[in-house]
Design a protein around this nucleic acid. Structure first.
Length: 430
DNA sequence: TCTGGGGTCCTAGGACCC
DNA sequence: TCTGGGGTCCTAGGACCC
């Protein structure tokens, strides 16, 4: 038996500061130092804010239509969301982080968990190196939180942003148990990763106010009241690593396509158009990952901000797992169409696919196809759109027409500077 | 008057996250 | 006038089986 104790491996979370805003700033330096917000689809509400915008007390998810006048008066600059740009910069960052670790979980578009080994000092030094490299090679500012569990790493990450002295890297291993307790006492329980507003209220009712209170609470009691998820949060706050890194979450287990409309719809004809487009988009994603779906859910809802809010939802199973957009569309309109009430204004429709199996495992079942003459519409669509672009071909009502009343509004969208030759940034010499 | 019990599968919905 | 979108995990409860 060796007497030397290997240092416990550290879990680091690397996340980009104000990610969408930072992406916008890379190709538009005039946004630097100014209050900037990025808006959701339809330019509906605020989904990212620069530090300057946060300082102006602009809330997350604030509806843009109700704050735009005052915000612009304060010099706030709004951008429509440009997911193609963000996705590309995210992929580059993921690749770069991968060079520093053997174990990486891509948690969201702007966050990765990575495992780092070494003494606390070495790990902190690596984190600083990462921070410099991402800024220099990609242009994004990132912060790093380090601890022995994901939940504590997330808290450290918050700290790395709020304490300027830390310069973007916070390693909880640098603190004594007493200091750690002081830190956790200063964090409201609702700020802990995995504790949402509902649970936070109930915990407060039990006298658990801070992250430290939750850490020191009775685990059995927490589990019986809230379930296994919250008990794991508690154990993670004690430093126990209960949530392993998921390096390859290979395929989605659910694919959904849903949008809100800038102008509501009321007729079955309009619903046909929407479902035609949505089923084609959802089916394309399904084929992209090589899956077949056995279950589909569809819904149409009126505005949740109005009286008489209703949602019509249907759930349907396919006789054989499928990736065929035609079959999906027919099933969707047959089930959802009759639910529609002509006096209502529907502002949102969604299609989701579930219960997947690999598409190659069903080849032998082709003899059960109800229509032996059916051609593979999905595969043909994929081939053509891959070659000529997504807007070149569509089926039926989801075809080439543009300017539908319900298409998305994106009035302030930036160029797709890293993925389209025609939208490259121009550098002016002077 | 009294009307089993345990297991599995499935789905809807809650809660949470970014 | 105008309030996002895409996920995951867990649990309760119904259907069904023996």
């Amino acid at each position: 038996m060796s007497e030397t104790k290997a240092p416990a491996p550290s879990i680091a979370i690397v996340d980009a500061n104000n990610f969408y805003v930072s992406c916008e700033r890379i190709f538009n330096p005039k946004l630097e130092g100014k209050p900037v917000v990025v808006l959701s689809n339809n330019d509906g509400c605020v989904i990212a804010r620069s530090q300057e915008a946060k300082a102006l007390k602009i809330d997350m998810a604030a509806p843009w239509h109700s704050i735009s006048a005052e915000a612009t008066a304060h010099g706030v600059i709004a951008r429509s969301s440009n997911y193609e740009l963000y996705g590309d910069l995210s992929a580059r960052t993921v690749e770069l982080l991968g060079r520093y670790t053997s174990s990486q979980e891509v948690y969201s578009i702007d966050e990765s968990f990575i495992r780092l080994t070494g003494t606390p000092g070495e790990v902190t030094a690596t984190a600083r190196e990462i921070r410099t490299a991402v800024k220099k090679l990609i242009g994004l500012p990132v912060s790093v939180g380090i601890a022995t569990s994901k939940t504590l790493a997330k808290l450290a990450n918050r700290g790395s942003k709020t304490a300027p002295a830390l310069a973007g890297v916070c390693n909880l291993a640098a603190y004594s148990p007493e200091q750690l307790t002081t830190i956790l006492t200063s964090i409201e329980v609702g700020q802990v990763w995995g504790i949402g507003a509902r649970t936070a209220q109930k915990l407060i009712g039990m006298g658990i106010y801070s992250a430290a209170d939750l850490r020191d609470a009775d685990a059995v009691r927490v589990r019986s009241r809230f379930g296994v998820v919250q008990e794991r949060v508690l154990q993670e706050l004690r430093g126990l690593d209960c949530l392993p890194l998921e390096e390859l979450r290979a395929d989605k287990e659910q694919i959904q396509f849903s949008r809100s409309f800038s102008i509501p719809i009321s007729t079955v004809h309009e619903l046909r158009e929407v479902l035609s487009v949505y089923t084609q988009r959802a089916a394309a994603r399904l084929r992209e990952q090589g899956s077949l779906a056995r279950l589909m859910r569809c819904y149409a809802s009126t505005s949740p901000f109005k009286e008489d809010h209703v949602t019509h939802a249907v759930s349907l199973a396919f006789p054989n797992p499928t990736d065929d957009p035609v079959e999906m569309y027919r099933a969707a309109i047959a089930a959802l169409g009759p639910q529609l009430q002509s006096h209502r204004k529907y502002v949102r429709v969604g299609v989701s696919l579930h219960d997947f199996s690999p598409s190659d495992s069903h080849a032998a079942l082709d003899i059960f196809d109800t229509d032996p003459a059916a051609f593979k519409a999905g595969a043909v669509l994929d081939a053509i759109t891959a070659k000529y672009g997504a807007d070149t071909l569509g089926l039926g009502l989801g075809g080439l027409r543009t300017n539908r009343a319900w298409t998305m509004r994106r009035d302030m969208v930036s160029p797709r500077a890293t993925t389209h030759w025609s939208e490259l940034a121009t550098v002016h010499a002077r």
